[in-house]
């Protein structure tokens, strides 16, 4: 697997199209569509965070739902137990995610690819088990009654579905910008270099562990943001949010979308979530279908939908 699709121009084009699509759906859709758009956008943010470390740092995480959960629970507890306004709670959640990831990252970032998967899976499941029994976090019932940020000073009411969707789109654009900048910046290129030839990066004096730990915590911070937004969208959290299947879905999204392309992660999140949603309405064995589809993509479409678009563009002669 080439594992990285680096094409800033196509990345930007696809991003613009996807954002326009989401805006159109948001404006012309009904209550449910708007909720669905917001959900996809939040999943896209999560997928981008996974995509960033998977492609740039070669760190495929199967425990990233942990950071989704950290962001969600931190927002809930800070706003409910400590009375911090949800808008600020979002920022604090991101910081908490960043910090915890830095601590964990110190132990695990230098692990070889498959061991990284094993260890993150184990850590994620540990967090899940802990959440289930923690009284502070509401155990298996989760937490309810989380408010959305109050932006009335901007004359904006986030409790309106259409506005909240736009709010998530706003965050997605910020995240996209941040990650594509980091990807092109020296740190991102160094991460890419580590994936291509880690020995040589050492030999030219690169700070391998530090780069990777920074990338890991940035990614965790973004996943925490997604968690924070998710809990604002729904108003409640259930510990299921931290289950391994959530991390797994994120992984499926980035593989289907085309790993390492950023826009591909958004594309993958949209397609997988729509398929999943539609399938689960018709059949109750949609996981079987998703599993098969995933295996076929890994076997025969290594660059996912992004690769498909790239090759179509080439054929059309652009």
């Amino acid at each position: 697997m080439r594992a990285v699709n680096y094409n800033p121009k196509l990345r930007f084009q696809i991003m613009i199209i996807l954002i326009l699509l989401s805006i159109i759906f948001n404006i012309f859709g009904g209550y449910f569509t708007r909720f669905f758009v917001a959900e996809i956008i939040i999943l896209s943010i999560f997928a981008i965070s996974l995509d960033f470390i998977a492609s740039r740092g070669g760190m495929v995480s199967l425990g990233h739902a942990m950071f989704l959960g950290i962001g969600a629970y931190a927002t809930a507890i800070l706003s409910i137990n400590y009375g911090i306004p949800p808008f600020y709670a979002t920022f604090f959640s991101i910081l908490i995610g960043l910090f915890i990831a830095l601590l964990i990252g110190y132990f695990i970032v230098l692990l070889d690819g498959i061991f990284f998967i094993m260890v993150t899976l184990a850590l994620g499941e540990m967090f899940h088990a802990w959440v289930f029994t923690s009284e502070l976090l509401g155990g298996s019932d989760g937490i309810t009654g989380i408010m959305r940020p109050d932006l009335s000073f901007l004359k904006i009411d986030l409790n309106t579905p259409i506005i909240f969707s736009f709010y998530t789109i706003f965050w997605l654009i910020i995240v996209y910008n941040l990650i594509s900048r980091i990807t092109d910046a020296p740190l991102g290129r160094n991460l890419d270099a580590i994936r291509q030839n880690s020995e040589r990066v050492s030999a030219i004096g690169g700070y391998k562990k530090t780069y990777k730990a920074i990338a890991f915590s940035i990614s965790a911070g973004i996943a925490s943001l997604a968690g924070s937004l998710y809990v604002q969208l729904n108003g409640f959290i259930s510990p299921e949010l931290t289950h391994w299947t959530v991390s797994g879905e994120g992984l499926i999204m980035i593989i289907v979308g085309g790993i390492g392309s950023i826009s591909g992660a958004i594309l993958g999140a949209s397609v997988v979530h729509i398929i999943q949603h539609e399938l689960s309405n018709i059949i109750n064995w949609w996981m079987l279908v998703i599993g098969f589809g995933f295996i076929l993509v890994v076997l025969f479409m290594k660059d996912g939908l992004w690769g498909l678009i790239e090759s179509i563009k080439k054929k059309l002669g652009y």
Binding site: R2, I182, P186, L187, D192, A193, Q196, I204, G206
Partner: peptide
């Protein structure tokens, strides 16, 4: 770094010399 161009490879190596390798933006 097989996926990088000549210029990028050299710049990457240079980036350590100038302590800019941590730049994110």
């Amino acid at each position: 770094f097989l996926e990088m161009t000549v210029k990028e490879s050299l710049m990457l190596a240079c980036s350590h010399k100038y302590k800019t390798s941590f730049n994110l933006i």
